[in-house]
Amino acid sequence: MKELILVIAKALVDHPEDVRVNERDDDRGTVYELSVHADDIGKVIGKQGRIAKAIRAVVTSAAIKSQKRVIVDIIS
């Protein structure tokens, strides 16, 4: 999952070297914290959060195979 998020995020931003994904287990499930360069936050979130929702949908769909609950948080 971590690699999937990295590939998607690096394709969207202008500063791919600043893309970081941290993985941690929580009571909600596995949480992936995506952090990008400050100039790229808008590109990852998108208008009205559409790109962020799409990223979450793709990652959730990929996680169904492993039967895990996955959450993607975007950190500024």
Results as ranks from 00 to 15, higher is better:
Met1Asn: 07
Lys2Met: 01
Lys2Gly: 11
Glu3His: 10
Leu4Met: 14
Leu4Ala: 15
Leu6Ala: 03
Leu6Phe: 10
Val7Phe: 13
Val7Pro: 00
Val7Ile: 11
Ile8Tyr: 06
Ala9Asn: 00
Lys10Ile: 06
Ala11Pro: 06
Ala11Asn: 13
Ala11Glu: 10
Leu12Gly: 11
Val13Phe: 05
Val13Gln: 06
Val13Thr: 08
Val13Ile: 09
Asp14Ser: 14
His15Pro: 06
His15Trp: 05
Pro16Ala: 13
Pro16Gly: 12
Glu17His: 11
Asp18Ser: 15
Val19Asn: 05
Arg20Lys: 14
Arg20Thr: 06
Val21Gln: 01
Asn22Trp: 07
Asn22Glu: 15
Asn22His: 15
Glu23Asn: 10
Arg24Leu: 15
Asp25Met: 12
Asp26Ile: 14
Arg28Asp: 14
Arg28Met: 11
Gly29Leu: 09
Thr30Met: 13
Val31Cys: 13
Tyr32Ala: 04
Tyr32His: 08
Tyr32Asp: 04
Tyr32Trp: 07
Tyr32Arg: 04
Glu33Cys: 07
Ser35Tyr: 04
Ser35Cys: 07
Ser35Phe: 04
Val36Leu: 08
Ala38Gln: 12
Asp39Asn: 10
Asp39Phe: 00
Gly42His: 00
Gly42Asp: 00
Lys43Ile: 06
Lys43Phe: 09
Val44Asp: 04
Val44Met: 01
Ile45Thr: 00
Ile45Asp: 02
Gly46Gln: 04
Gly46Ala: 08
Lys47Ser: 03
Gln48Trp: 02
Arg50Gln: 12
Ala52Trp: 00
Lys53Ser: 13
Ala54Trp: 10
Ile55His: 06
Arg56Trp: 03
Ala57Lys: 08
Val59Met: 07
Val59Pro: 01
Val59His: 01
Thr60Trp: 09
Ser61His: 12
Ser61Trp: 08
Ala62Pro: 10
Ala62Met: 12
Ala63Ser: 15
Ala63Lys: 00
Ile64Tyr: 12
Ser66His: 12
Ser66Trp: 05
Gln67Ser: 14
Gln67Met: 08
Lys68Gln: 12
Val70Gln: 09
Ile71Arg: 04
Asp73Asn: 14
Ile74Trp: 01
Ile74Thr: 03
Ile75His: 00
Ser76Phe: 00
